[in-house]
Structures are given as structure tokens and as C-alpha cells.
């Protein structure tokens, strides 16, 4: 088992290298660089930069160097000094900007993932076992509604409901009075009041998708001969379904961590903007728009790492759960 994990981690290294190269390449793709957008921003405000200053800035940021030199400077800084570069736009080191945002993003995403599983698993099992019953039809309908509603509409509606009928302060993660206050029970409660909207909004879509996945997987397994064998032993219907087909139907379900986690982290950008959440999405968007290349690059790289970590976790869980994978 340890060897298996070690092997998977070692396999991640070349993948990570490729991803870092691609993400650095992508952020260099649009014509121009941070200076061009800076110059046009300054020109918009009626001033102008003389060419000497521009040349000095270009040399200072290394923007006149070839691609591989720039890449090497960037990646070696990250690897050896934990230095993700300088954000031109914010005038701060990228690492200072990014950890807060990444932390909150991860926190919200993991909470959403737990909610998704907690809801999708039992409903999926129910829908598969009682296929074409009234309950299944109702959940199917709700599931499709969940899939069909765009997240930002749901966010707006929930904000309205929460503000109008529950009288809550909405938007952001904290009420103004707690924004800069030290942690206390009151602040925690305030966080919970703010957090439920983004988590529900973020989870709805994936929950609906995962219910369908679970229902389809389990429906296939329910008719397998080993289920009949278990029934012929005299097991209770509930016990045997949980112990045999559900156990095997979980495989594809667990593989979904690999794609749910990155989808959550990058897919919630719109929701985060609508709800004014201090998450990674809005910052990444702004970085891309202003061609703040080191900030954008760092985000893309970290998301790639998270995707790989998600895959690793799901692979490890699969190996724990399924001896056919573990023993081969």
C-alpha cells in the first residue's frame, strides 16, 4: 500500500512539470504583457510614460528575456524560495495575496464536498433501489432542476430570500462588525450565517450530477449475481444492499473526487463574484484581465496541484476500498 502511494506521488512529478510549463505558457499567450496594460491604464488617465521608463521597467521585471529564462526564474523561485513572484497589479508578493484566498476557497470547497456527498449518496441509493417509484421521480425532478438553474441566479435568489425574509446581512463571509474582529463564538456564528448560501449554491449542481451517477451505478449492480447470492444467504434487504452492491457502486463515486474538487474550486468564480466572497475565483479573473502574469500563473499552478491531489486522494481511497485495484 505504501509502495502504491509512493508510486503515485512519483508519477505526479512529471505531470506537475508539464502543467507548470503549460500554465506559464498560457498566461503568456495573450498579446502584450502587464506593462502594455499598465501603459494603457496610465494613458487613459491622461498621463504618459516615456520610453526610457518603460525600458527600465521591462528590464526590471525580466519581460525582455526569452520564454525559457522567464519560466526558469519563475519556477526556481517557487521551488527553492517559495517565492511566487510579484503581483504588478497589487504591488505585493503573490504568496501574501494567495494563501488567504486559497485557504478560504479550500475551506468552502471541502464543506461543499461533504454536503454533496451527504446528500447525493443516500438519495442516489434510494433512487436506485426504488427505481421508478414516486420518491425517485420527485428526486429526479429536483435533480434536473438543480442541474438546470445557473448558479448565479440561485445565488441571487438565496441572497434575496435571506435578506428579505430572514433579515440577514448577506454578501461576503462576515458582517461588517466582525470583519476585523478577533475570533469569538459570535464571529463563528456570523460565519455560519454567511456560509450556508455559498455552500448550498456551490453544492447544488454537483449534488444533482452525483445523484444521477450513483443511481446509474447502483442500478447496474443491483441485478448482479452476487446480490442474489447474498440474498440467498438470508441477509436483510437493507444490510445486503449496503454491504454488497453499494460497496461496489461506490467506486465511480469516489473517482469523482478527482473532478469535483477542481470543478468546485474553479467553477465557483461566478458565485463568488455575485456573493462577494474573498475566494480565489474573483482574484484569478482580475489577474487574468490585467495580465498580472505571476499572480495568474500561481493560481493556475495551485489549481493544477489541487486537481492532482484530488486524483491522488481518490486513487488512494479506491485502493483502500477495492482489493482488485490494490492487489494488482
Amino acid at each position: 500500500m505504501l509502495g502504491f502511494i509512493l508510486k503515485r506521488v512519483l508519477y505526479m512529478i512529471p505531470t506537475l512539470f508539464g502543467m507548470s510549463l503549460v500554465s506559464f505558457f498560457i498566461i503568456q499567450l495573450p498579446p502584450g504583457d502587464f506593462l502594455t496594460s499598465l501603459i494603457s491604464a496610465i494613458a487613459d488617465s491622461g498621463q504618459s510614460l516615456d520610453s526610457a521608463t518603460v525600458a527600465a521597467l521591462t528590464a526590471q521585471y525580466g519581460l525582455d528575456q526569452p520564454f525559457y529564462v522567464q519560466y526558469w526564474n519563475w519556477i526556481s523561485g517557487i521551488l527553492f524560495r517559495g517565492d511566487f513572484g510579484w503581483s504588478f497589479d497589487w504591488g505585493q508578493p503573490v504568496s501574501r495575496l494567495i494563501w488567504d484566498r486559497m485557504g478560504i476557497t479550500l475551506f468552502v470547497s471541502v464543506l461543499s464536498l461533504i454536503l454533496i456527498w451527504a446528500v447525493a449518496l443516500p438519495i442516489g441509493i434510494y433512487s436506485a433501489v426504488k427505481r421508478y417509484s414516486i420518491g425517485d421521480h420527485i428526486f429526479t425532478l429536483l435533480g434536473f432542476i438543480g442541474l438546470a438553474i445557473p448558479t448565479f441566479i440561485m445565488a441571487l435568489v438565496l441572497m434575496y430570500v435571506s435578506y428579505k425574509f430572514l433579515g440577514q446581512n448577506v454578501g461576503g463571509l462576515f458582517s461588517p462588525e466582525y470583519q476585523d474582529a478577533p475570533w469569538s463564538l459570535g464571529k463563528l456564528w456570523d460565519l455560519c450565517l454567511h456560509l450556508w448560501i455559498p455552500i448550498v449554491v456551490i453544492a447544488t449542481n454537483s449534488t444533482a450530477a452525483l445523484i444521477r451517477v450513483m443511481r446509474a451505478n447502483l442500478s447496474d449492480e443491483l441485478n448482479k449475481p452476487y446480490v442474489v447470492t447474498a440474498r440467498a444467504k438470508g441477509l436483510k434487504e437493507f444490510t445486503l444492499i449496503m454491504r454488497y452492491p453499494v460497496r461496489i457502486a461506490l467506486n465511480p463515486f469516489i473517482s469523482t473526487i478527482g473532478w469535483v474538487l477542481p470543478a468546485l474550486i474553479s467553477g465557483v468564480t461566478i458565485t463568488a463574484i455575485v456573493l462577494n466572497l474573498p475566494m480565489a475565483g474573483p482574484l484569478l479573473l482580475r489577474a487574468l484581465v490585467s495580465q498580472d502574469m505571476y499572480l495568474a500563473g500561481a493560481f493556475i499552478l495551485l489549481m493544477s496541484v489541487l486537481t492532482l491531489v484530488g486524483m491522488l486522494i481518490s486513487d488512494i481511497l479506491l485502493a483502500v476500498l477495492d482489493p482488485r485495484i490494490r492487489l494488482q
Partner: peptide, 28 residues
């Protein structure tokens, strides 16, 4: 689905199936 038949299954009547591969759970 009742208790009475479950007390008979596996205890008073045992059953062997055709496909020994698919009739046993692969993960237990």
C-alpha cells in the same frame, strides 16, 4: 421480504450458482 423466508435461506436451504466469479463479491 419477510423474516420467515430469511430464516430458511442459507440455513435450511443452501444454494450454489452457476458463475462462481460473478456470484461472489469481488471486494470481500
Amino acid at each position: 421480504r419477510g423474516d420467515a423466508i430469511r430464516a430458511i435461506r442459507g440455513r435450511r436451504i443452501g444454494m450454489i450458482f452457476q458463475e462462481p466469479m460473478s456470484s461472489l463479491s469481488p471486494v470481500h
